[in-house]
């Protein structure tokens, strides 16, 4: 048994988890189950990042997506009514057209993607932390500062939008 084989098995498990949970998010009627499956998808994508040798990105992924975004979305689920409805009203009216567009697109892009034969498991020695930090704070320092302004703007915007005028 070699480590390569372990990598392939892990990849298969994670891929099945991602695709299965993603389909579940779209098709399940219970919004709570959708939210949980979304968090599960995020965790599996984090696992993919670890397979690719990007453990810092994986940690950020769990910290931001599972710890913050899923919790926010759960708050959204709690604050809006989720009553049971007839299954006919579950999808929007244009769902056949959407399926017609999406299915060839997805299959096409996946086929193009499969044509890349390079090894993807070139794990950098000593982790990706140093290289990532150097890149962000040296080459991308200005975009990084702009991103913090974006976060501030989003925070203020969200507060203004949901504030009640007493």
């Amino acid at each position: 048994m070699s480590y390569d084989l372990v990598g392939v098995i892990l990849f298969a498990v994670l891929a099945i988890g991602i695709v299965g949970a993603g389909i579940g998010v779209v098709l399940l009627d219970r919004i709570t189950a959708s939210a949980l499956l979304m968090a599960f998808t995020f965790l599996n994508v984090a696992g993919m990042f670890v397979l690719l040798g990007a453990e810092t990105i994986a940690a950020f992924q769990v910290l931001i997506y599972v710890g913050a975004i899923t919790v926010l979305i759960l708050y959204g689920v709690m604050f809006t009514p989720q009553r049971e409805r007839a299954y006919a009203l579950f999808f929007q009216t244009q769902w056949p057209w959407a399926a017609l567009v999406v299915a060839p697109l997805g299959i096409g892009v996946a086929l193009v993607g499969l044509s890349f034969r390079d090894r993807a498991t070139a794990v950098p020695a000593g982790g990706d932390l140093d290289a990532l930090a150097t890149s962000i704070f040296r080459d991308f320092a200005f975009p990084f500062e702009v991103a913090s302004v974006l976060l501030l703007a989003a925070m203020i915007g969200a507060i203004v939008l949901v504030r009640r005028d007493d």
Binding site: V8, A15, I18, G22, L52, A110, G113, A120
Partner: peptide, 20 residues
């Protein structure tokens, strides 16, 4: 080893699920 294309394919499928 897992080729790069496999990751891209999973990504494409997940993106299509999102669009759908």
């Amino acid at each position: 080893a897992v080729p790069l294309g496999a990751f891209i394919a999973v990504s494409a499928v997940l993106f299509s699920i999102g669009i759908a």
